[in-house]
Amino acid sequence: MKILVTVKRIPDPDESLKFAGGGLDTSSSKWVPNAFDEYAVETALRLAEVAGKRDRLAEVIVMSICPAKQRQHVTQFLAMGADRGVVVDADDSELDTIAVSKAIAAVAKSEGVDLTIVGKLSQDNEGNQVAQRVAGLLNVPQAGFAATVKWDKNAGTLDVGREVDDGVEHKLVPLPAVVSVDLRVVLPTSIKNGVTADSHKYQEGPRLASLRGITMAKRKKVKVLKLSDIGVSSAGSEQVVAVAPPPARPSGQIVGSVEELHEKLAKEAKVL
């Protein structure tokens, strides 16, 4: 089986935002991997490996759309254990959600992948559209916000658990498919591949790359493509009108009693 995992670099969410020229100024940003993509790669690795052994059940390909010279995050995911990488060389200005989705679909098709795993959203713009669009473009089933994934190799299906308002919903998805993952997918027993013992407990959270993994990552193959190589035209269907910081919040008030709070909510805030 081939698993394609999409990964993105984002400006460090812990840094304060800078604004310039009606948009975000990322010229001095520290770039870090999107956390949900780390969960996606961890999901793929847990599906592909037999815990405690060197056997692999699937090939894990990480894919990113970014400037080819700024692909440190791809190296990081290769160091975690992914087998090879695909980088689509494009600047952020060339991209919007549709272009990104088309590029992913094109690579998934050309690689002949059986499963595409996507983080449920990127932490910078929180679009939450890519998985759904890719599934649509590929015309394959999708399961969004996976909290658990159980792979039945014989049946060629995934049982994807999703946390919904009134409990956990399970979707039985035939492969090939697209799955987007949520935070809980990296709990110790969330992923079952049918070969690693169901009782096996992983460490919570995405794994750290080892120094050996980091050294080996340099030797793993990374294919670099251009948008034109895969028949995708650059952005144009979406237009960012303006990006601005939220207005500063007025300072709070400390009230002396519940009665005073009630009065202020009723008369000043007018919410009661």
Binding site: V32, Q72, Q76, A79, A209, L211, I214, T215, A217, K218
Partner: peptide
């Protein structure tokens, strides 16, 4: 790049 990735990993290990 190798040193950058190593630092990223080790700082996380140090904190976690």
């Amino acid at each position: 790049e190798e040193q950058e990735v190593t630092r990223e990993m080790l700082q996380r290990f140090a904190g976690d």
